[in-house]
Design a protein around this nucleic acid. Structure first.
Length: 123
RNA sequence: CCAGACGGCCGGAUGACCGCGCUUCGUCGCAAGACGGGGUGAGGAAAGUCCGGGCUCCACGGAAACGAGGGUGCCGGGUAACGCCCGGCGGGGGCGACCCCAGGGACAGUGCAACAGAAAGCAAACCGCCAUCGGGCUUCGGCCCGGCGGUAAGGGUGAAAGGGUGCGGUAAGAGCGCACCGCGCCCCCGGUAACGGGGGUGGCAUGGCAAACCCCACCCGGAGCAAGACCAAAUAGGGGCGGCACGCCGGCUUUCGGGCCGGCACGCUGGUUUCCGGGCCGCCGCCCGGGUCGGUCGCGCGAGACGCCCGGUAACGGGCGUCCUAGAGGAAUGGUCAUCCUCCGCCCGCAAGGGCGGGGACAGAACCCGGCUUACAGGCCGUCUGGCAUU
RNA sequence: UGGGGCGUCGCCAAGCGGUAAGGCAGCGGAUUUUGAUUCCGCCAUCCGGAGGUUCGAAUCCUCCCGCCCCAG
């Protein structure tokens, strides 16, 4: 797998929108992962991860807990799996709360590798 | 023991490992930062945003008042203030403890009341009842028809029909008279007051709805921490200063520095060169202020928390002592597990109890405070009421 | 943070103090050889929920619930 990649946090609304516009996603019972390569000079640079929890999945307590669990899973997986120069958005689903944490981590692993750049062939 | 009423309180506990926000210390490093240690870290509703304030800016200004709009509405008190709280009063409900009530004004005015009903607001005669007049009939008791009048006691309609019940009275009736109750007015007494009690008097007039318009009394300037204050990058543009540059010919103009127009030449740019066409034009450096991204402050010592004492029926107030207790900004508490507590289900056991499995609510500070409202597993404490049993 | 709007039958909706129009859909019937069309009839009383005012509330008042929109 890739060497350790520094992971930063995605914060701006515009960044979230551009990731969503890329239309690359992977759905698991616990969350939806979106990925998008930044238009950047070089392919280097940190990977960035953002989190989304909508009002549809519950009240403030539910949304916060869902985001925290996803954040914990991402902190565990992303440094070893994420591709440099990519932006990721993790969207919480109704199943985020009930899903066991180990399964969440495994899902994160497969989701990230499924969205990995195809050997950097497609530029 | 059962059923119930009211008030107050808690909101799982302890620990291990890997992580999180803020803060502090140490080591390393030129620095950015890295590593390690310590401290601290959500609620009774943090929620809904329904009221009241603090704070900040804006507007107006002697304080304010009037008007518009909105709100509040028995009385007294508490409070920074309130639509909140406490204590009373009145009305309603409950055997009771106790609970509920937007509870000013309907002789200032305007309005509303479907359907039903004779009539719904200066009252009114449909059926009845009564008296009387005329006519007819008669078994001489009366009956029928019509006219004029009396009558709100009866029937019927309605949510509501102009006091209620009883006795007297009358042709039948009627506050027509009387007693009691209700109501209005006056006086006295108690109470700060709302109001209560008593007496007298009137003879029923003044029906209901103001969560209909409205009237009266009182209260409210507007916006909101994305308030507001400060620092301030890159780029573009504005202003100022300095340096360099500002060709040739002709015309016009001049404040004699220069400026404008035309032609030629030159630089950059587009089309393949020649050549042609369009466009751009002072350049550089320094400084100044405005404003955007971003950053910092505002930002937690406060109508503060806890304890004791005093005043007050209480809400609450006063005094003394102790304490400092979240502060983020895509927003901090997550993951795994153990023991205990507690609830549910199943199993074992006469029982005490034990085993296995599952669950522990509502919900997350976003400037702060006082209320209200709403959500909430389970549990604890106190006071009181009505039963049953025992003494 | 501030402001605005809407909840009425399965769907779209009128009504804003006097006892819930209308259309579509559905169901039953008639017409027709059958179907379509057409016609007739049926279909909310718990008007988002709970209290209150009134003789009477979908309508007025208070408090909740849900949804949508706007400004910064």
């Amino acid at each position: 797998m890739s060497p350790l990649v520094t992971v930063e946090r995605l914060k701006r609304r515009a960044d979230f929108l551009s990731v969503a516009a890329a239309r690359r996603k992977y759905v698991t019972p616990g969350f939806v992962l979106q990925a998008h390569r930044r238009e950047q000079i070089s392919s280097a640079g940190p990977a960035r991860v953002g989190f989304t929890a909508t009002r549809k999945i519950g009240n403030a307590v539910i949304r916060n807990r869902a985001r925290r669990r996803l954040k914990a899973a991402a902190d565990e997986v992303m440094p070893g799996a994420a591709a440099a120069g990519f932006d990721y958005v993790v969207i919480a689903r109704a199943g985020t709360i009930a899903r066991p944490y180990a399964a969440l981590v495994a899902d994160m692993q497969t989701a990230v590798s499924a969205l990995a750049p195809k050997a950097n062939v497609a530029k």
